Simulated assay, not measured.
Amino acid sequence: DYSETPVDITGQEAAYGVTVTEDCNYTLTYVDTQTGTCPVVITRTFTAIDECLNQGTDTQTITIGDTTDPVVTAPGDDTIEACDVATGLADYSETPVDITGQEAAYGVTVTEDCNYTLTYVDTQTGTCPVVITRTFTAIDECLNQGTDTQTITIGDTTDPVVTAPGDDTIEACDVATGLADYSEAPVDITGQEAAYGVTVTEDCNYTLTYVDTQTGTCPVVITRTFTAIDECLNQGTDTQTITIGHTTDPVVTAPGDDTIEACDVATGLADYSETPVDITGQEAAYGVTVTEDCNYTLTYVDTQTGTCPVVITR
C-alpha cells in the first residue's frame, strides 16, 4: 500500500495501528517517501485534519531490505577423460562468467526470493590429472551472496595402444650390417611411425621409443620393444622379433686339375695333408676363389688313391 500521494484511511486506524485523539470529526491520511535502496527506508507520515482544519501528524519509519543470502547448490563433482583442459572443458574461465538464467544448463540451483545474478569462475591445480574448482556465486540486489563449488577432474587414464610391425628375417653376416639402427638404449622415433612400420592409437600427445635386446649367434634373435608414453605417463608397448642370420653357403671354385711329374707324393706335392690345413687369406697362392659376403675360413684336405699314378683329391 505504498503511496506517494495521500491515502485516506479515516476509520481504519486500528488496521494501520495508528491512534488519533480528537473530539471533533476528522480525516486521517498517510503519505510515503523513501530513501536508499538496500535497505529502502520509508517514512510514512500520518496526518489528521479536523473540521476546523486543525491538524496533527506523526511518522512511522518502515525499513524494507533483503538480508538473506541466496542458497546455491552446485552440480555434483565430475570426472572428464581428456588430454587437457581446452579439450575437456571448453567453457573453462578464470574470469567470472555470467550464467544468470542458465542454471539448468549448468546443473546448478539457486534459492533466492529476489532478483540475482549467477556467475562461475574456475581455478585449476595439478597436471595429470588437472583438478578444476568451479565456484558458482549468486549475488542478489542487496549484495547478499551465496556460493558453492564443483570439482571437475580432467585427466587421461587410457594407455596408448602400440602395434609393432610384423616379425622380420634379415639375411646378413651380423647385427651391425643387418640392422644398422640396432640400439640397446632407447631411441626416440616420435613422428617416424610410418618409417618403422609401427602404429600408435592415442588421443593425446605421446613419445614413441624403441629399444633392442639380442640372444643367440647364428641366427641372432633381436627383440625390438616399442613403447609409447603419453603426457599423463600412461604407456603401451608391443614387440617385434627380428632374426638376423646367414643361410647362404659360400661358393668355392678350386683351381683346375693338375698333373705333376714326380716319383712320389712327398716329392711331387710337398704340402700334401690328410688333415685340414687353414689357408685363409692364401686363396691366390692356391688358385682358389671363394664367393662369400661374410667372414670365412678356408681349408683343404687331401686324399689319395692308386700308386702309379697316385691320384690326389684335394
Rank of each mutant, 00 (worst) to 15 (best):
T45Y: 03
F46C: 04
C128A: 14
L89G: 05
E283L: 03
Y286E: 06
G281I: 02
A74R: 08
Q145I: 04
N205L: 03
G287N: 11
A105C: 08
I152W: 00
Q55S: 15
I132C: 01
D1Q: 14
V220Q: 05
D50P: 01
Y272M: 09
L118Q: 00
T209S: 12
E292M: 10
E94C: 08
T73N: 14
D8E: 14
G306R: 15
G306Y: 13
P129R: 08
D159R: 02
G236N: 11
T135V: 05
D271W: 08
G191K: 11
R44G: 01
I9W: 07
V221N: 04
T253F: 00
L28T: 02
D159V: 03
T5G: 09
Q304W: 05
A48P: 03
T137S: 09
T259A: 14
T45N: 12
G281Y: 06
T35Q: 15
D77S: 15
L269A: 01
I222T: 11
C294S: 12
T243K: 09
L53K: 15
P219F: 06
D293V: 11
T201H: 08
D249W: 04
T27A: 13
E283V: 02
V97I: 14
D188W: 09
D293N: 15
D156M: 01
G281E: 05
L298G: 07
D77G: 07
L208C: 08
D258Q: 07
V220E: 03
T157L: 10
V71K: 13
I9E: 12
V85Y: 07
V40F: 03
C114P: 00
E112H: 00
P276H: 09
L143C: 05
A254W: 02
D167A: 11
I279N: 03
I279R: 04
G191I: 10
C204S: 09
A228W: 00
D140G: 02
Y206H: 07
E103P: 02
L179F: 08
E292R: 10
T177R: 14
P276S: 13
E261C: 11
I99M: 05
T133M: 04
T137L: 07
N234T: 13
E13R: 08
A48H: 03
G101N: 07
G236K: 10
D302K: 11
E171I: 04
P165K: 12
I99V: 12
G65C: 04
A194P: 09
T199E: 05
D203N: 15
